[in-house]
């Protein structure tokens, strides 16, 4: 069943991508064409076939010693903050997550 503009609007909301009305229309066309391309997947009888989530088999996680080693990976605070759009002292700065006034609580 084809995806409607309403369906695509819901997906966009979930994906946190604000689409304009004309983008939504184009995206709906695209989504339906793309899903058609995936059709061969639905034609298989896959009973008893194990999925392959990772392409190279027989691998296991690489475990490290549980020791803090700041020298390798830890970013100094100024470096970590360097690319952020807004910062405040030692922090990333974000708008309110609960709304901009007390009535929103």
């Amino acid at each position: 069943m084809a995806l409607s503009q309403d369906d695509v609007a819901q997906i966009a909301d979930y994906a946190r991508i604000a689409l304009t009305p004309s983008e939504l229309e184009q995206m709906t066309t695209y989504m339906n064409e793309a899903v058609d391309l995936l059709e061969p997947i639905t034609h298989y009888d896959l009973d008893g076939v194990e999925p392959t989530f990772h392409p190279i088999g027989d691998l296991s996680n690489v475990m490290g010693e549980d020791v803090v080693d700041d020298s390798v990976r830890a970013l100094p605070i100024d470096v970590a903050l360097h690319n952020a759009g807004s910062t405040h002292d030692r922090y990333f700065r974000v708008p309110s997550i609960l709304g901009d006034s007390e009535e929103d609580f």
């Binding site: 997947i41 896959l46 076939v49 999925p51």
Partner: peptide
């Protein structure tokens, strides 16, 4: 999930 099974095939 089926796509990952087809990947096996």
């Amino acid at each position: 999930y089926p796509a990952q099974q087809v990947r096996t095939l």
